[in-house]
């Protein structure tokens, strides 16, 4: 169950970028998780809301893009200023 610690790394990185880009909230976040990444997509989606609580991502929708390789990539995020 390393999904929680990886989800927390994602939240930390997303908040860092959001603050740097002067965003107030993250509305949607997209990650790519490959079949050989060693990360279970369902587990990741399950722990994400817990990792995101009390952060700029507390209301963010998680979008997981699938691929066949080893990718575990922070693709993009949608932010707003209000």
């Amino acid at each position: 169950m390393h999904e929680l610690s990886l989800a927390m790394d994602l939240i930390e990185r997303a908040e860092e970028i959001a603050r740097r880009e002067n965003a107030k909230r993250v509305r949607q976040i997209e990650v790519e998780i490959g079949d050989l990444s060693g990360i279970d997509r369902e587990s990741f989606a399950f722990v994400f809301p817990e990792a995101a609580s009390n952060s700029l991502l507390s209301e963010a929708l998680l979008v997981i893009r699938t691929s066949s390789g080893r990718e575990f990539q922070f693709v993009s995020m949608e932010v707003d200023d209000v």
């Binding site: 990185r13 970028i17 990539q73 922070f74 995020m77």
Partner: peptide, 8 residues
């Protein structure tokens, strides 16, 4: 939409 494209 901010494009990040980095490995986690």
């Amino acid at each position: 939409r901010i494009s990040v494209e980095e490995s986690l």
